[in-house]
Design a protein around this nucleic acid. Structure first.
Lengths: 227, 227
DNA sequence: TTGAGTAAAAAAATCGATTTTGTTGAGATG
DNA sequence: CATCTCAACAAAATCGATTTTTTTACTCAA
């Protein structure tokens, strides 16, 4: 119908939502920081209405907190919350993995392999961090995509975003990265052979390892609630 | 500090958010219906900005869908989604129940008993439906409150709201209600005796029963996506 | 020095109007 | 008769200005 395939332009509030979401996950704002709305308005070059709509959506998503009559703030980060997020993420992803293995067809296998390939390609350019991050996210998405539960995938995605907020605080660690990458490969093999038990254990390890790395960097808490 | 304990007035966008949320859960809008913003504005007597902010939050929460340049619509209801919601709800609540039993202290027990008492009181006035609904929600909240996972509780709450959208379509059924009420009492006993295994089985039954009732009323699908 | 009170300043929330986009239907064209 | 065009209309999205609330800075008395 429409002329070109790239015809759909998002409205401003959606664009600013995505941008702000990424910036929050990437840690471009300090934990606990109060967001100055007019400063954001200038920085992102958007109007007040789209900006406020995006902030409201982010608050409902859990990447911002809205305080009654005094605007929005970046949630404080606590090691207990990291533990909560990582533990729940492990449980939910293992749950989804089981269902994905049971329901996955050959189209799913193809998508997993394709995602793995993209992830390896991204690995070849260590300087392009964001490309690897996106490929990594998509790999984990593809692995669980066939689980059949829309809501489970939604929660896992949300937890993943929350987890990344913590994980990204840690400096890059080539040694750990290498182990994680190897695990990605093994996960693909186990997916193709539908070895649920081994895959669950591996995925659990995978998350546990990321967790412990992030945990090391959370020891010195970035901020806390004021009183 | 402030004079009276009830001094905190919410801003308009929060009020309209709660009101609209309840109306959506209670099924006051048809599934799939497109919301006419200016009509909502008149009906709820609020301005455009607070209304749009509330709509955006509801969309992020999953009680509305935002279509790119054509406003908000009430999500269509599908029996497959009900199955997904109920199944996941059972799994997550059983998970939380286990942790709640392990971590629950005597204060938790007190709150559970208090919630049970309120639920029984509400039962005595069948005409006050909304009071029972609130007491029921609070009872299930209290039962899981000590699980220690903020995010798990958050997801369970969200699933509960989604589930209620379907459950409320069904007409009241005294027979079923009686069984569910008996289960509430048994859950309390099992909580006090920390019988995890039996409580999990019972909670699973509890949700399964609600599910099958709601399912009966979902057979004639309310609406579907247009093409 | 401290603390309550208060006026000015800043920030958030809201409103009314404008701009942009999607929808509809009458008339033209093949 | 079907389809296309385009103007008029309706609705959504956005903007700029106003109102409300919080925060800050200051004064004055205890």
């Amino acid at each position: 119908m429409t002329a070109s395939p790239s015809a759909n332009r998002d409205m401003a509030s959606s664009r600013i939502f995505e941008t702000l979401k990424q910036d929050l996950i990437r840690g471009r704002f300090a934990a606990g920081e109060k967001l100055a709305i007019s400063a954001l308005k200038d920085h992102y070059q958007v109007g007040l209405s789209p900006l406020r709509e995006a902030l409201n959506r982010l608050a409902a998503y859990g990447l911002l907190e809205q305080v009654n009559q005094r605007g929005f703030r970046v949630p404080a980060m606590h090691i207990e919350e990291l533990d909560d997020i990582a533990g729940l993420r492990a449980q939910l992803e293992c749950m989804a993995l089981t269902q994905a293995f049971q329901a996955g067809d050959s189209e799913w296998e193809s998508q997993v392999l394709a995602a793995q390939h993209r992830l390896r390609r991204a690995d070849e350019h260590p300087e392009r961090v964001e490309e690897w991050e996106q490929a990594h996210l998509r790999f984990h998405r593809a692995l669980l995509a066939s689980c059949g539960s829309h809501w489970l995938l939604r929660f896992i995605e949300q937890l993943h975003d929350q987890f990344d907020r913590y994980r990204r605080l840690a400096p890059p660690n080539p040694g750990v990265r290498e182990v994680l990458d190897r695990q990605h490969g093994e996960l693909v093999e186990l997916a193709l052979s539908r070895d649920i038990r081994a895959a669950r254990a591996l995925l659990d390890d995978h998350i546990r390892l990321s967790h412990s790395v992030a945990r090391g960097c959370c020891e010195s808490p970035a901020s806390d609630d004021a009183t």
